[in-house]
Nucleic acid binder design. Structure first.
Length: 489
RNA sequence: GCGGUCGUCGUCCAGUCUGGUCUAGGACAUCAGCCCUCCAAGCUGACGACCCGGGUUCAAAUCCCGGCGACCGCACCA
């Protein structure tokens, strides 16, 4: 199913809407989650907590979104999270100054060259606009961070462009007071902000977006000394190495053939593969793509993007970056604090391997993979514990005491599950509506219920029905949420 | 940011070229009622829109300008 169908479903069924929609000056790249979208997001994050954070014994924090200027001096974002651009004075086209010069001179032009030097080079080479041969204006740096003025003094600060900087600056205290030992993962779910020049494609590129980031701190001398690696050594992943796709590579093979730098990286790639499998992605359409030198972030020594294939092409869901000691060393230098920690009896500056997950796009891709257009209906085959509604309670008819009995069933379930009570229209219509938002189960109260206290339980995917005792509803729902298939014949 | 295409009920479409008959029409969806013993049935009724601002005109959904947004292409994507 395609992007248009999914976005239509999102807009029509209360998953998502453009932020500030009713105003004419609404900005691109900002979206609000509606009730169903919000529930799916919360449930997705819960899955992330269960299957990555808790499973691996990580610590989760929640840092502030506004951070001081020096954080980004240290992180390199003030200097490097920029594009040097020049604008043509005649046709108005914007170009990357460094790339233009590189093309014209054939020499390497570092991206971080001061703008004065770029201007000088443009003057010397007599560079003109490649589109219209018009004169070029002054080069300037466009920083993708949102700047804020805090307090009456209007102190420079920034909305964080990635959640992980909170983890790095909090790390020294966390390590001490939480009695942490290397290797240790610190995780965070929250908002990040990037002033994209041209946000596109709905939630795929946002200016304000959710990330779930995991920073694994480890002793670089012990990157191959990891007991839990054995648990996942046979887990297979798909690796894309410079355009060559290796499908079904065992974690152990990936390490032994040196496709990944160490056991720790192999283990976390395998763990992430398992996570998305559980989240319901079609893993046959997934890969870890090793990034070449040009593509990597400025802080990454090795990088693998976890990507899935969708109607929009391959979409990056998680950047897996081996950041080395870059971040902690930089924060140590700029802050003047000692950020090294004790590992055994040796002081080390830990290295970092990160799993930087885009939440909004993950949810989009899971929905797209789960959406099926069947001849008679649209159905989203979400795994039950990600569904916005777990169960619908439907009286078959609106008379003879059936609604009353249905409400008796509904009321005690309300506080434990996401339940939806619906008595309007035909029962078939109500099934269809719930299918379309991914609700895995419906309970229908009929005349037999009044006789023997049984209700029908209807399965979203097969549309089959079984009868269960009404006092068995909660245990049955718990089974469904655990992923048990009660409708197999 | 640039270029192209476009913007009408929740959704899809008619109306725009050729200004007035548009008090903006239809279908689907939604809501209420009737009916109703399990997969979008039927009947009755209701709710509901010209993206925003300015201009031209006796008169603007319709023509012009600007803004915002969407899509496609370019560029960008730490």
């Amino acid at each position: 199913m395609g992007y248009d169908e999914i976005m239509k479903l999102f807009l029509e069924r209360g998953f998502l809407m453009p932020s500030c929609e009713i105003y004419s000056d609404a900005l691109a790249g900002f979206w609000d989650y509606g009730p169903h979208g919000n529930t799916v997001k919360n449930r997705y994050v819960d899955l992330w907590r269960r299957e990555l954070v808790r499973r691996d014994g990580m610590n989760e924090i929640d840092g502030s979104q506004v951070m001081s200027k020096k954080v980004f001096v240290a992180s390199g974002h003030l200097e490097s999270f920029v594009d040097p651009i020049v604008r043509c004075e005649k046709c108005g086209a914007t170009h990357r100054a460094d790339r233009l010069l590189q093309e014209a001179t054939g020499k390497l032009v570092p991206e971080r060259l001061p703008v004065e030097q770029l201007d000088q080079m443009i003057l010397e080479t007599g560079l003109k606009c490649p589109s219209c041969k018009g004169p070029l204006g002054k080069a300037r740096r466009f920083n993708l961070m949102f700047r804020l003025g805090v307090g009456a003094a209007d102190d420079d600060s920034y909305l964080r462009p990635e959640t992980c900087q909170s983890i790095f600056v909090d790390f020294p205290r966390l390590f001490k007071v939480m009695r942490l030992k290397l290797p240790i993962g610190i995780a965070q779910f929250g908002k990040s902000f990037r002033n994209e020049i041209a946000p596109r494609q709905g939630v795929m590129r946002l200016r304000e977006f959710y990330q779930a980031e995991i920073e694994v701190f480890f002793n670089p001398e012990k990157a191959n000394n990891l007991d839990k690696y054995e648990e996942l050594r046979d887990q297979t992943i798909n690796l894309d190495l410079d355009g060559t796709l290796l499908q079904g590579v065992k974690c152990s093979e990936a390490f032994e053939s040196k496709h990944v730098p160490n056991k720790l990286v192999a283990y976390y790639l395998a763990l992430l593969h398992q996570f998305y499998d559980k989240a319901g992605l079609d893993m046959k359409r997934s890969r870890f793509r090793r990034l070449g030198g040009q593509e990597k972030a400025f802080y990454a020594e090795e990088a693998f993007d976890f990507e899935v294939e969708t109607s929009l092409g391959w979409v990056e869901l998680v950047a897996c970056n081996y950041r080395t000691g870059y971040d902690l060393a930089a924060h140590a230098k700029v802050s003047g604090q000692d950020i090294s920690v004790l590992d055994g009896d040796k002081k080390v500056v830990p290295h970092v391997f990160e799993l930087s997950m885009g939440i909004d796009r993950s949810i989009y891709c899971i929905m797209e993979h789960a959406y099926a257009q069947e001849p008679e209906r649209s159905v989203v085959k979400l795994r039950p514990d990600l569904a916005p509604i777990t169960v619908g309670i439907l009286p078959l008819v609106n008379k003879d005491g059936i609604p009353e009995f249905s409400k008796k069933i509904y009321n005690p379930l309300k506080t434990r599950y996401d339940v939806f009570y619906d008595e309007s229209g035909s029962v078939g219509r109500r099934y269809r509506r719930l299918d379309e938002i991914g609700c895995p189960a419906c309970i229908t109260v009929d005349y037999q219920t009044l006789q023997d206290q049984t209700v029908t339980l209807r399965d979203r995917d097969s549309m089959k029905q079984i009868r269960i005792k009404s006092d068995q509803i909660e245990t049955t729902l718990d089974k469904i949420l655990r992923g048990e298939d009660l409708f197999k014949q």
